[in-house]
Amino acid sequence: MAGDTMTQFPTGIGTSDADHISLLGHDLAGELLGSLTFGELAYWLATKRRPTPSQLRVFDAVLVSLADHGFTPTAIAARLTLYSAPDSLQGAIAAGLLGGGSRFLGVTEDTGTFLHASVADLGDTAGWDDAAWDELATSTLTAARGAGKRIPGLGHPVHKVTDPRTAVMFAIADEEGLKGPHLRLFEAIGRVHPEIIGRTLPLNGAGVAGAALADAGLPLALLRGFALLARTAGLIGHLAEELEDPIGPDVYATVDRNAVYTSNALEQKE
C-alpha cells in the first residue's frame, strides 16, 4: 500500500467476494453453471473469447484424442507414485504430468510451433492446391534437415504405419471448416517426407492435435497445456483403476528383483 492507494492486481479470469464468484466477467453461479461445458470453459479461459461451435468440436476432439494411450511412461509414473505415496493423489497426477515432454504429449506443442514458423507469414492461402502445399512442405523439411532438426509429429512408437487418430482429426477439422494452414502443411508433410528423409513414417496423433489446435485459434504457447489437460483425465482413470486393481507393486517388484549390478567405467579404471 502506498499512501491511500491500495495496490491492485488486475485479472480478466476471476474474482470473488463474500457472496459472489465472477468468472470471465460473468456470475459463475447465476450464468455459467449448467449452461457451459468444461471444454468451452477451457477454450474461453485460454483465449478470452468463447469458441464457435466448430472450434469447440475440434477442441473437444483433440482433448479426447490425447486423454490416454495405454501404459505410457506418464501413466506408469503416476501409478508407481500412487503406490509409493497412496496418501497423495495430487502427487501421482503431478508425476504423470511432469513426464509430458518431447517424446510424449509435448509433441503437440512442438508440432504446432514447427508448422507455425512456416505458415505465419503466408497471408491468404485459401486458393492453394496440394501442389503448393507440397512445395512448402518440401522446403520446410529440407531446411529442417539441413539444420539438423528433428521433425515433430512424424512417427510413433506403437503405430508404425498409421496412427488411427490422424485421419479422423483431419476429417473433423475439414467438416467444421477449420482445416487451415497448419493442418494443410502437416498433411503435405505426410505426402512428401519419404523422399526427403528416406523412409515413410505416419503422422502421429499428437502432431495433428497441435496443428488442429493452432488452426482452431488456440495460443501456441499453451498447446502443451491442452495436451496435459487432456492427459489429466486419463491419469485420473489410471489412478482409479490402480486403486481397484493395482499393477504398481508388480512393476516395482519385477524391476527391483531383476536388477543386476554392473560395475561402471569409473570403477573399472580404479
Rank of each mutant, 00 (worst) to 15 (best):
G207K: 11
D250V: 15
F226S: 09
I247M: 12
R224V: 10
H193M: 07
T254W: 04
L222D: 15
E242M: 01
P202Q: 06
G217E: 07
E187D: 15
A188E: 06
A259S: 11
L228C: 15
G190K: 01
P246E: 13
L203A: 05
A221N: 13
H238P: 02
R257W: 01
T254A: 11
E242R: 00
G210L: 04
R224W: 00
L201C: 09
G190V: 01
E195L: 10
P246L: 13
R231T: 11
P246Y: 11
A212E: 05
L220V: 03
D245T: 12
E244R: 13
A211F: 05
A188W: 07
H182L: 02
A253D: 13
G190E: 03
L183Q: 11
P202F: 06
G205K: 05
A227Y: 12
L213Y: 11
T200F: 00
R191D: 10
A212G: 09
A212N: 10
L239F: 01
L201Y: 02
D256Y: 01
R199T: 12
V260Y: 02
L201Q: 10
Y261F: 13
D215A: 08
Y261M: 06
Y261E: 08
L239Y: 02
A227F: 12
A212V: 04
R257I: 00
E187G: 06
D250K: 14
P202K: 07
I197M: 13
L222I: 06
F186R: 09
L228F: 15
G198S: 00
D245C: 02
R184E: 12
G198P: 03
G217Q: 07
L203H: 03
Y252K: 12
V208D: 03
G237S: 13
A230Y: 13
V255K: 01
L203S: 03
R224T: 14
A253T: 11
A240R: 14
L218H: 11
N204H: 10
G190S: 03
H182W: 03
N204R: 11
Y252I: 14
A227K: 12
L223Q: 08
